[in-house]
Structures are given as structure tokens and as C-alpha cells.
Design a protein around this nucleic acid. Structure first.
Length: 393
DNA sequence: TCTGGGGTCCTAGGACCC
DNA sequence: TCTGGGGTCCTAGGACCC
């Protein structure tokens, strides 16, 4: 096989996380391992821990009447569904479905909806992450409901740790989690999915502990779009090449994939073969960008309306920058027509370099208004965003 | 006047994730 | 009639410098 190994090795080396400083008893051992070069062995396996239907599960912690019945959580203005319980998924309710279209279903199936409460979810999330950090000094908080952990041990030990994590989080927070454990992040993701879907696994799946014939069977049946990092665009192109399942993709020449796509897809492919290419990273404390975006309740079609909206959104962005004590050097403003309005599809955008770092609403508004020159009057825009980039000082 | 290699920074656009 | 609101990473091309 003719893989350019230097790319992969170079990538791994340059992205190795530095030792984390945490209040953890195993930290000394961990740092010793790093110093002595035993680090590679120390992170032989990666666990992905994921809270099941996070938002709904959080609501259930404080409202037991939501248990054992279909429940959903709605987006900001109760517009559409952003989380579904297993029972709601079983009813076929898709993610992002508008709530007003579900009222008949709600009556018929005893479906209940809650408004979202992000403060609550954030609070429970921190508690979960705190518990997870006790199982490994090496943790990457990937999202509000997911974290990767570095683990080592025999397959049976790993399975036991997975069960312990699950039991501990449930006991201390009331939240159900599933655990997938494998040699790479991409396989850990797939294991986690398996842990969720296959009841016999009891919510914990150690990939290498599953019989090889079963693993192969799973990958031969799983559509390639199910892989972490492979989205709809790439899937369409892969399908055109005759690649339909995860196994098809895994068995393709990595060099061909890098040529046709990019290094990202090649890494994903190698990860499916068990070669770690996507390192664990500590969560960054400072974000690279801040976005303020909202869909319009009523479509915006005139220049005057657009001007007003740009001004308001730029000021909202300014407020957020102030709140985070940040300044921006660059601002991007964009507008989009609705996805369901393809004949008029238009996505104008401008990027403006600001005169130095700033969070001043006047400066941001002026910059955002440069989008106006790209607006086509009469087009029905559905969404507008401003995106200041980069922190100040 | 022409030619060259190598590096960094910036912008724009594409794709993906939860 | 109508599907949210955040984020990250990668690539290509141009400007500019030595």
C-alpha cells in the first residue's frame, strides 16, 4: 500500500496534546508516561461517551412524568424539534420538524413538548464531564452531550470501565449514557451508535470485543453517510464512484481518496482501518469566531428592511463580543434564501477587515451594511448572520 | 530587465459536526 | 407551509517579502 505515511505521522506528532493539568489522582502517572515516551501505549483506546437524547433526558431528570412516553424539546421560539426521546423517534418525528405540524400527532400519541432550557442543559453537562474526568486524565469535551476519553486495558477491563461510567453517570445525574470504545475516534463513534441501537450490548460497545464477522457484517450494511466526517456532499460523490457502504469506503485506496477529496477523508478512511489519525485535543478556552444568526419570521425582500436587520444583528454581535470581553478584526455578513426556495437560491456574503480590533456597534454595523450592495431586491431572504472573527488583545 | 524558490498572511468558499 | 443556532477545519489563490 502506498500511503504517504509522513503526512499522517507528521500530523499526529504536531497535534499531540500536552499533558493536562487536572485535579486527578492518576495525573502523576500520566505525566510520567508522557515524559518516558510511554504515552502512545497510555492511550491505546478511545471511549466516546454520549448522553442519550440529551435535552429530553435533562427535562426528565426534573419531570419524571416525561418518562416512558414520547417527548421532544423545541428550539428557541418553540419553532421546531431539536431533541427527541426514543419513543418520539419511534413515531418517526424527524429532527428539525416544525412543532405546529405535530399537534395532531401529539394528541393521538400522548406526545409532550418542552421549551428548551439551555442553562439547565449546560449545568448538567458540566456535572457529567466532571464525572467522566475521574475516569481519565485525558478527556476531550466534544459537545454539550459528548466527550472522548483516553483509556487503556484489556478488552474485558475496557468493557467493565464502560459499564462503570454508565452506572456512575446515571447514579449521580440521572442521565442515561452510551459508551463506545475503539482504537480510533471514528470507530469509537460507530461503536457508540452500536451501543445505542443493539439492546443486547447494554449501552456499552467495545469494538474489538465484538466478533470480527459481526463487525464486518455491520460495516457492510451501514451506509457510508453514517460515518463521522462523511456528509451528504461527499456521500453523493462516493456513490457515483460505486462506494455505498462503510466497508466499501474502508476498502478503497486511501491515496485515491486523498486525490479525489482531501486529507480529511483519507484520515477518516484510515481511522476505519484502526489507524489513529484524529488526535484527542483539549477543549480550547478561546473560540475563533462568534456568530449571531437568526431566521426571519417573515421573509425580507427590500433593501430598507435588510438594512435595518443588518444593523440590529451587528449590534447583537457587538453585545455578545462585549459580554465575552472580546474584539473582532474581521466581520462576515451573509444572507440566505430558504432551502425550500431553490429557484431563487442566493447566498450573498461579504467579509470586511475592520480598522483594527473592535467590538464597537457603530463600526460593526457599518461593516455589516456592505452586504447591501450584494442584495437582489425582490429576493426573499430567510436568514442573515454577522460573524465577527478573532479575538482582540 | 528578467527569472526563481520559498515562506507567510489574508480572503473566499466548501464541507462537516452537534 | 416550511427545517435552529452555533461552531471547526481544509483548500486554493493572491499579495507581499526575502
Amino acid at each position: 500500500m502506498n500511503i504517504d505515511e509522513s503526512i499522517i505521522n507528521g500530523y499526529q506528532q504536531s497535534h499531540d496534546p500536552s499533558p493536562v493539568k487536572r485535579d486527578n489522582p492518576s495525573l502523576t502517572k500520566y505525566n510520567t508516561a508522557v515524559a518516558s515516551g510511554e504515552y502512545q501505549q497510555d492511550r491505546q483506546y478511545i471511549a466516546l461517551v454520549d448522553v442519550n437524547a440529551m435535552y429530553v433526558s435533562c427535562e426528565r431528570v426534573f419531570d419524571p412524568s416525561l418518562h416512558n412516553r414520547p417527548a421532544v424539546v423545541l428550539s428557541n421560539n418553540d419553532g421546531c424539534v431539536v431533541a427527541r426521546s426514543a419513543e418520539a423517534k419511534a413515531l418517526g418525528i424527524p429532527m428539525g420538524y416544525p412543532w405546529f405540524k405535530l399537534e395532531a400527532t401529539a394528541k393521538q400519541h400522548n406526545l409532550v413538548a418542552k421549551s428548551s432550557n439551555y442553562e439547565l442543559y449546560g449545568d448538567l453537562s458540566s456535572r457529567v464531564m466532571g464525572i467522566l474526568a475521574r475516569f481519565s486524565a485525558w478527556i476531550e469535551v466534544y459537545s454539550i452531550d459528548e466527550a472522548f476519553l483516553g483509556l487503556r486495558g484489556t478488552l474485558d477491563e475496557l468493557h467493565a470501565v464502560g459499564q462503570q461510567i454508565k452506572a456512575e453517570v446515571l447514579k449521580l445525574t440521572g442521565l442515561p449514557v452510551c459508551v463506545g470504545i475503539a482504537k480510533t475516534k471514528t470507530l469509537a463513534k460507530i461503536s457508540n451508535e452500536a451501543a445505542k441501537k443493539v439492546n443486547e450490548l447494554g449501552g456499552v460497545c467495545v469494538w474489538d470485543r465484538v466478533p470480527e464477522s459481526t463487525r464486518d457484517h455491520v460495516l457492510r450494511r451501514l451506509p457510508v453517510i453514517e460515518v463521522w466526517g462523511i456528509g451528504p456532499r461527499v456521500t453523493r460523490r462516493l456513490n457515483a464512484m460505486g462506494i455505498f457502504t462503510v466497508a466499501d469506503f474502508r476498502d478503497t485506496d486511501p491515496v485515491l481518496i486523498r486525490e479525489k477529496f482531501s486529507i480529511v477523508q483519507m484520515r477518516t478512511l484510515l481511522e476505519l482501518r484502526g489507524t489513529p489519525c484524529i488526535p484527542l485535543e483539549e477543549a480550547r478556552e478561546i473560540k475563533d469566531q462568534l456568530i449571531y444568526s437568526r431566521s426571519f419570521a417573515e421573509r425580507v425582500t427590500t433593501r430598507e428592511d435588510m438594512e435595518q436587520v443588518l444593523s440590529i444583528y451587528a449590534q447583537m454581535a457587538s453585545t455578545r463580543l462585549h459580554r465575552h470581553d472580546r474584539e473582532a478584526k474581521v466581520l462576515t455578513a451573509w444572507a440566505m434564501t430558504s432551502y425550500f426556495n431553490e429557484d431563487q437560491s442566493h447566498h450573498p456574503a461579504v467579509t470586511v477587515a475592520l480598522p483594527g480590533y473592535s467590538a464597537d456597534p457603530v463600526v460593526l454595523t457599518k461593516a455589516a451594511k456592505s452586504l447591501l450592495s450584494k442584495i437582489r431586491p425582490g429576493t426573499r431572504y430567510a436568514l442573515i448572520s454577522t460573524r465577527p472573527l478573532r479575538r482582540g488583545r
